[in-house]
Design a protein around this nucleic acid. Structure first.
Lengths: 229, 229
DNA sequence: TCAATCCTGATTGTCGACAATGCTGCAGAT
DNA sequence: ATCTGCAGCATTGTCGACAATCAGGATTGA
């Protein structure tokens, strides 16, 4: 599994960068519980640094919406609720649909072949039935990551991979929601890649949007069984 | 003209907040030229503050992509190029299309009436032919702002109004590009509002995407007459 | 008993100084 | 003449201390 969504660790970057990465991972994976208050002095002491770099890291976490800050009050880890999760899926539907369209227009052939190999590998993993669904989920993110990357739209990439994907991972870690949609999702992935390989941007966008909408509905159904919104 | 895209000035917020607003405005309007290097000591001295709040403001400007920073080297104001501008319009097409769809589903009736009044006012301004195109452009942003706000998707709102709209304004100020598309744009705006009022989300999205795509093409035509990409 | 007020404690915002890193110009060698 | 290495300088990153602000609890009055 390629560590596609995880930035490679630059060893001698600045302290603030390192703390930022550590905190982001801790928040996403739940080591720092959602909704908990963040005290600058105690965190600085725990990581053995000063408050300066820590504050910079907190600012960056705020900019990607993982923590909320109020002046003179402090910072809290974001508290996820179902409405915001559904909002994210609406944004993903729009952006990744466009990403699929652009990928169909401009993605290099080699990158498409690589995604095909990736999907073949996923197919094998799912065939070995009860394999860790965790890796299936990671593979799902990896697939979406490559589609976005393939089109070469840097801003699209930033929004999705620096902000939204971390939120999606955070939800999975917190709610432990493993989708039993793995097989359907894989099938949909293959259709999308076929459309991209055929350079059919309109179809690729339509399929991607339907795919994400299906994920959204599966989540909405599980969150509040009585309502779809 | 409502100051929709300009946050109201909180008088006694933190220093960093105030400097952030001032710098953002200065960059967007060109007072600080694009591509120029930013020196922390000289800027701190000019605004009469310390480097601490200034660094926080720079970090926030970096998060909305108005400045670029490299460790141990410094910060520069972003240098706009035509490719990135076109990228932004792709993102806007996707996001605002979704925003129009959501607005058609959930925007309150009163807000729709308000937009209708706004458009009527714009129509009057355009009728008085050579009225400052500046205000027409501001009115255009105001229209889009209200559509996004009407749907109530907070994340969609953040991405568009905190990041992309500032970039769009920056381009206009820098290149002084006043669109002679004002009449066409107004007509398209009216169609979009009609679709929203009719609660036809699919049509609203389709019209909004076509509208933004038309703006994109108009810009692409002016930027590099020989290519549309 | 309840509400309003004040006080206290802690936390955050701000500042100036020090250390570390990258860039620039010059001298010297090939 | 061009390239390489070094030294100096400027800028950024980091740190500890001080001031400003807010949350919570105790106290007092009705």
């Amino acid at each position: 599994m390629t560590k596609a969504t995880t930035a490679p660790i630059e060893p001698s970057a600045t302290i603030a960068d390192r703390i930022f990465d550590q905190l982001r991972q801790a928040i996403v994976e739940g080591s720092i519980p959602a909704g908990s208050k963040i005290s600058e002095p105690v965190l600085a002491a725990r990581y053995g640094i000063s408050r300066g770099p820590l504050r910079e890291a907190l600012r960056r976490l705020e900019s990607i919406k993982l923590v909320e800050r109020r002046a003179n009050v402090g910072a809290r880890v974001i508290q996820l609720n179902s409405d915001q999760l559904l909002e994210i899926y609406d944004v993903r539907e729009a952006l990744e649909g466009m990403a699929a369209r652009i990928a169909a227009e401009r993605m290099p052939d080699e990158a498409i072949d690589e995604i095909k190999r990736l999907l073949a590998q996923h197919r094998g993993e799912i065939a070995r039935d009860d394999w860790q669904t965790y890796f299936q989920e990671e593979g799902d993110l990896d697939f979406h990551f490559r589609i976005v990357q393939g089109g070469g739209n840097q801003r699209l990439f930033d929004i999705l991979c620096n902000d939204l994907y971390h939120l999606a991972r955070m939800y999975r870690c917190q709610f432990g929601m493993r989708s039993e949609r793995a097989r359907d999702a894989l099938k949909e992935h293959e259709l999308i890649v076929d459309a991209i390989a055929a350079r059919d941007g309109e179809l690729a966008e339509w399929l991607m949007r339907r795919h994400i909408r299906a994920s959204r509905e599966a989540i909405a159904r599980r969150l509040v069984p009585q309502t779809g919104r």
